[in-house]
Design a protein around this nucleic acid. Structure first.
Ligand SMILES: NC(=O)c1ccc[n+]([C@@H]2O[C@H](COP(=O)([O-])OP(=O)(O)OC[C@H]3O[C@@H](n4cnc5c(N)ncnc54)[C@H](O)[C@@H]3O)[C@@H](O)[C@H]2O)c1
Ligand SMILES: NC(=O)c1ccc[n+]([C@@H]2O[C@H](COP(=O)([O-])OP(=O)(O)OC[C@H]3O[C@@H](n4cnc5c(N)ncnc54)[C@H](O)[C@@H]3O)[C@@H](O)[C@H]2O)c1
Lengths: 220, 220
DNA sequence: TATTGCTTGTTCTCAAATTCACAAACACGG
DNA sequence: CCGTGTTTGTGAATTTGAGAACAAGCAATA
């Protein structure tokens, strides 16, 4: 019987946010319990997989009934480490950085944007009303900002050629994880988890499956 | 001996864009050949994995020497189906849609944005200079646009609640693949490959590995 | 309290992916 | 033309993940 102290497989970790999202939606619509079949449908995965994934967190379902939506949400959140908010700093206030800054979906999901930095002096001083008027600061202030505000996550939205130096600055400043939109592999200490979101890569993967048309759908 | 006609594993397909990117970068810096070790380093993966992945495309290396950068680039491109350009239509000209529209990285990598649509009449008519002055059109024109311009890829940048109808419209219009930024599971025919990019999901996955600090790095 | 119907949790089997390890193959220098 | 050093391509072993199947367990109801 796996308990929450045991390891959770990587493949499961990647799906937990899907379940979390589905659970939040269920709670919003007033559902109090949910079966693995229903949850699987909402998350777009196999029901057996849902049950196995959830069993890694503990035995939180009730046979014949299903899972309690609120309780399961808490368990998934806890496993993902979504206890309190994790503040985010955005590095690079260009096209993408501005879109991210204005986007409310981060704060809604527990990742408030508390600071924005850029290397361009002409961008420093801009206030973003969507994020409670956070003002763009210079990248040289990064370490001070991270320390004083207890920033946990750094988001890199600089051009590819500046991404490594942005990463170095974030690591030096003491952030605990990094999400990068630059299409380059970063050299980051193993102690700091990081992920990359690369749109061109996504389009190229789609291109493959499109060429092999119909042979496989959405394998993500 | 696997040939290009054989199947390429999903896990390999997901990495081919990484290699492609590294190869383009190598060519830019004037390198003519590259070893699996070097390529692995650039792509951030294991060298044996690189060799096995490439072997699915065919036997294109030279023992004792490595791979010819230009030739391998062509083979990877061909496998991914990156022969000609694939035109893209962006659905939703909000924060994210505008950032995407202004971003040059799409066209650079063979995915020119040839059209943008939105449901909001006040957005219709806006011209985006970064993409050769493409003008935002109404979403009702989607089918006509896709057919007349031979659009291959649809990018969904609408709010979550409109994403399914955007997907339906794209499918109806005849696009061949879909990339969505909305944090919802879409119901799309199996014949049309689609992928989802969800930033909150990425942050939540990072949150897990951060909580289990140091036990595992960047598993993507 | 016994029965019934439903859903979980887990076991088992199969498939996919990763990694190691090394023979085969090639370039090059002497 | 032969030996040497290097790097590929791929078998084989191992790890990881997926999915089917079903016994175990609970609620509800009579
Ligand atoms: N815009 C998009 O839709 C989009 C899509 C996919 C990927 N990306 C990637 O996201 C990144 C940003 O794209 P963009 O379109 O916003 O670029 P951009 O040029 O509009 O903005 C980059 C910003 O980063 C700032 N910057 C540069 N070096 C910096 C440094 N060392 N420290 C701090 N700030 C620095 C610049 O001053 C600028 O404001 C790029 O790597 C791009 O490939 C963007
Ligand atoms: N902005 C970001 O940085 C960001 C980050 C992550 C995810 N997202 C996701 O991307 C999506 C868009 O985000 P955003 O911040 O750009 O939102 P937004 O509200 O700024 O823009 C949405 C746009 O879509 C248009 N639209 C609405 N319904 C439509 C329809 N049926 N057909 C065509 N157009 C329609 C609206 O008129 C609006 O212009 C959302 O799903 C959001 O969750 C955005």
């Amino acid at each position: 019987m796996p308990r929450s102290g045991d390891v959770v497989p990587d493949a499961t970790v990647e799906r937990l946010p899907l379940y979390h999202q589905a659970l939040v939606e269920l709670a919003r619509t007033g559902e109090t319990t949910v079966s693995s079949v229903k949850l699987a449908e909402l998350a777009g995965v196999n029901a057996a997989k849902v049950r196995k994934d959830l069993s890694f967190l503990g035995s939180y379902g009730t046979r014949g009934v299903g899972y309690d939506v609120d309780f399961l949400t808490i368990q998934v959140s806890r496993t993902l480490g979504l206890t309190g908010d994790s503040s985010v700093v955005i590095v690079g206030f260009g096209n993408l950085g501005q879109a991210l800054a204005k986007y409310g979906g981060f704060a809604d999901r527990g990742f408030p944007v508390v600071a924005i930095v850029d290397a361009d002096p002409t961008k420093v001083g801009t206030a973003v009303k969507e994020t409670d008027g956070v003002v763009v600061q210079h990248v040289d202030e990064l370490a001070k900002i991270v320390r004083s505000q207890g920033v946990a996550v750094g988001v890199i939205a600089t051009p590819a050629e500046s991404a490594q130096s942005a990463a170095d600055a974030l690591v030096g400043a003491g952030v605990q994880s990094i999400l990068s939109f630059a299409p380059v592999v970063l050299d980051i200490p193993e102690t700091i988890p990081w992920r990359k979101v690369d749109l061109a890569t996504e389009l190229q993967i789609l291109s493959f499956y499109q060429a092999r048309s119909g042979s496989l759908q959405h394998p993500a």
